[in-house]
């Protein structure tokens, strides 16, 4: 049960954004993809979700290739994405944002239960159900974006910079929720962050990306070697 991105290459026209990225996420694992701005992290996530077509490499889910599948087909394979900037549907109400994802997901029966469960996890959303999503605060929008992705009942969640633009306390809450989701549902999470500090406490594995390449992967005891992690992050060591 693994999402495997191997030797991924993605270009925007002539510009190569991702040159060689290999990241694997096993069921129930939280993997962080970190790196400086422009390293190709978001592009890697978008390619995995099917929003960008890679030029090379493979993306497989439980051994089956995802290449050539549309984003909506990948959702039906239990892959969901929370993009950078949240991209909630601002003119739709909170309830509609959740329903549109439920209606589109593979498992229609039990939608009400899933929604109830998520609203218990994100109680603020229950209070705002009838409000246009555009009126929510940044933190609430981030929760809505995560809840919306979870409405599709994914086994794998791709989440891009969940802390962007949020107050530290809210960021803490978001990460607590992600850990809680992993614990409760065995959700596998691939999270992109610029800041390494934020993810170190939750991640089972950290992949460092620089100039379109995953240059190092840290897991287990290696994760406690902060000094080395920082050196790799800043390009001072390989």
């Amino acid at each position: 049960m693994t999402l495997a991105i191997e030797h991924l290459e993605v270009s925007y026209g002539r510009l190569a954004a991702v040159r060689d990225a290999t990241v694997t996420v096993a069921s129930g694992e939280i993997v962080a993809l970190v790196g400086p701005n422009g390293a190709g992290k978001s592009t890697t996530l978008l390619a995995a979700a099917g929003a960008l077509q890679p030029r090379g490499g493979t993306i497989t889910l439980d051994g089956a290739s995802l290449l050539g599948l549309s984003p909506e087909q990948r959702v039906r394979r239990d892959l969901a994405m929370v993009p950078e900037g949240r991209e909630i549907f601002r003119t739709l109400t909170v309830a509609e944002n959740l329903t549109v994802a439920a209606g589109a997901g593979r498992a229609k029966p039990g939608t009400a239960e899933v929604m109830d469960e998520l609203l218990a996890l994100f109680p603020i959303l229950r209070e705002r159900l009838r409000q246009p999503a555009g009126q929510l605060s940044g933190g609430e929008q981030q929760q809505l974006a995560i809840a919306r992705a979870l409405m599709t009942r994914p086994r794998y969640l791709l989440i891009d910079e969940p802390s962007l633009g949020l107050a530290p306390l809210v960021v803490k809450r978001v990460y607590e929720m992600l850990t809680e989701l992993r614990r409760r549902q065995g959700l596998a999470i691939l999270v992109v962050e610029q800041s390494m500090r934020r993810v170190l406490s939750v991640a089972d594995k950290v992949c460092v990306m620089r100039d379109g390449r995953v240059v190092a992967t840290f897991a287990g005891e290696d994760l406690s070697d902060r000094r080395r992690l920082e050196q790799v992050y800043f390009g001072l060591a390989d």
Binding site: G50, P71, E72, A80, P83, E87, A101, A104, R106, A149
Partner: peptide
Amino acid sequence: RMARLVGVRA
């Protein structure tokens, strides 16, 4: 794009 990312069939 986002609609497709939550599973809406284009």
